[in-house]
């Protein structure tokens, strides 16, 4: 489904991703954890080509994202990149809803204008999605009138409206009040059980355990360790993961 191979990315002199390779199978939920500054978010943003990368390849369903891989490496055209992005849904830490559109308009904008879905059909689908994330009665509300949790669920619905093959979640609960985190995680759980392929960057460790098919631990721009949740969380192989988990447990044991 998703294949990242030999990814290199630098911001100026800082190498933020060093030879990162990752394969995600259809229906699989891969959770990326690690300390801040480890390159998790950058990895997600590269997959969607919101960041350029210097070396390596990223393919979704065998089709390259961002750079042509046959022959010389060349950046794809703006239009080709936009088409590639249609297949990848992304949800952001800060929601990034369009403030000048109401909930329904936020969802239908891209299907109607990008995919040329007929408006009536797109709106019917949008209402289904709103129901799915528990916002049926909010179709006409503007984002500013919604709580953080509601905004984030709307953002999930907006991404799903493009019928993506894979969904990327970038610390989607980090900006939420603790009591609102649950409703967003519930929506993600629902999505995972419906068989969506997902790459999730998160700090919600309790959530990691019950949603992840596989956990990837990143630090310093490399994948340090990956494995099944119970294996990585309870019998980590590397010192760095052990140290990370210990710090985490110390902080949250009340």
């Amino acid at each position: 489904m998703l294949e990242v191979a030999g990814l290199h990315k630098r911001f100026g002199a800082v190498e933020v991703l060093r030879d990162v390779s990752l394969t995600v199978s259809p229906g699989e939920v891969v959770v990326v954890i690690g300390p801040s500054g480890s390159g998790k978010t950058t990895l997600l943003r590269c997959i969607n080509l919101l960041e350029e990368y210097e070396r390596g390849t990223i393919t979704v369903d065998g089709e390259p994202i961002g750079y042509r891989i046959d022959g010389r490496r060349a950046r794809m055209s703006e239009r080709e990149i936009a088409r590639a992005r249609e297949r990848i849904g992304m949800v952001f830490q800060s929601f990034n809803l369009f403030p000048h559109m109401n909930a329904l308009q936020n969802i239908v904008a891209a299907p109607v204008r990008v995919k040329r879905v007929e408006r009536r059909q797109a709106e019917a689908r949008a209402r289904e999605l709103l129901a799915m994330v528990g916002l049926s009665d909010k179709a006409a509300e503007y984002p500013i009138r919604l709580s953080g949790g509601q905004q984030q669920r709307l953002a999930i619905a907006r991404a799903l409206a493009m019928d993506p093959k894979i969904m990327l979640f970038d610390e989607v609960t980090s900006a939420l009040d603790p009591e609102l985190v649950g409703e967003v995680l519930a929506a993600m759980r629902q999505l995972a059980s419906d068989g969506m392929t997902m790459v999730v960057v998160t700090h919600e460790m309790s959530f990691v355990r019950d949603i992840a098919d596989r956990i990837v631990f990143m630090d310093g721009g490399v994948i340090v360790e990956e494995g099944k949740p119970e294996q990585l969380l309870f019998t980590p192989q590397t010192e760095r993961v052990r140290a990370f988990l210990k710090r985490y447990n110390d902080r949250y044991r009340i």
């Binding site: 969607n48 919101l50 936009a82 992005r85 952001f92 809803l97 990008v114 991404a159």
Partner: peptide, 13 residues
């Protein structure tokens, strides 16, 4: 962030 969101939905410039 507004640009990122629009791009991630497959919108051209």
């Amino acid at each position: 962030a507004q640009w990122d969101a629009a791009r991630s939905l497959g919108m051209t410039r």
